[in-house]
């Protein structure tokens, strides 16, 4: 008992840290900020909700997902995602709903379509171009090194100089 008592400040701190971690980690943390508890009848819906709020961009704050953002619009979007998920709408339906209103910009993961081809392919293009440059440079340097073969006499001369140096 006494030992427990002495340990209590530490355990209280640990407890608080644990509570904070649980609160932040809980799927409904976004809704906590707007004072709306998020409860679903099934785990699948809960998973869908927490996946969606992390994939949708808050269009006012621009570099935050609606899960992270404290903007009123993000709260509205979370509520809409919550309601539609609870109604049993699918992930695609909800994303389509928001894309129709806010454009592709609400998606953090841009779809592969005509106007995003360059976006998706540019890393690979950069790899191909960079690889090409690297390849030519290496080939040129290699050509420099092996360009002129020494004659056997020259090689002998070099060996003689080197061995002299060692002996001295």
């Amino acid at each position: 008992m006494n030992r427990h008592h002495r340990a209590s400040p530490v355990s209280a701190m640990l407890g608080a840290a644990l509570a904070v971690t649980l609160l932040l980690g809980a799927g409904g943390a976004g809704a906590v900020a707007i004072g709306e508890p998020v409860e679903f009848e099934s785990e699948a819906k809960e998973r869908q909700y927490s996946r969606l709020v992390r994939e949708l961009r808050c269009t006012v704050c621009q570099s935050e997902t609606i899960y992270e953002s404290n903007a009123p619009l993000a709260a509205d979007m979370r509520r809409r995602v919550y309601e539609m998920t609870a109604e049993g709408r699918s992930e695609e339906e909800i994303i389509d709903f928001l894309v129709q209103r806010y454009g592709d910009y609400v998606r953090y993961r841009p779809p592969l379509q005509a106007n995003t081809i360059l976006l998706w392919t540019s890393p690979f293009l950069a790899l191909v171009v960079g690889g090409g440059i690297w390849f030519t440079v290496v080939r040129q340097r290699r050509a420099l090194v092996t360009r002129r073969e020494l004659t056997p006499e020259q090689r002998d001369a070099i060996r003689r100089f080197r061995d002299d140096g060692h002996e001295q």
């Binding site: 619009l73 809409r80 209103r101 454009g103």
Partner: peptide
């Protein structure tokens, strides 16, 4: 007041 029409009209700010 709840921003429902705003969402349908794609209002963000």
């Amino acid at each position: 007041p709840k921003g429902d029409v705003g969402m349908d009209w794609g209002v963000y700010a």
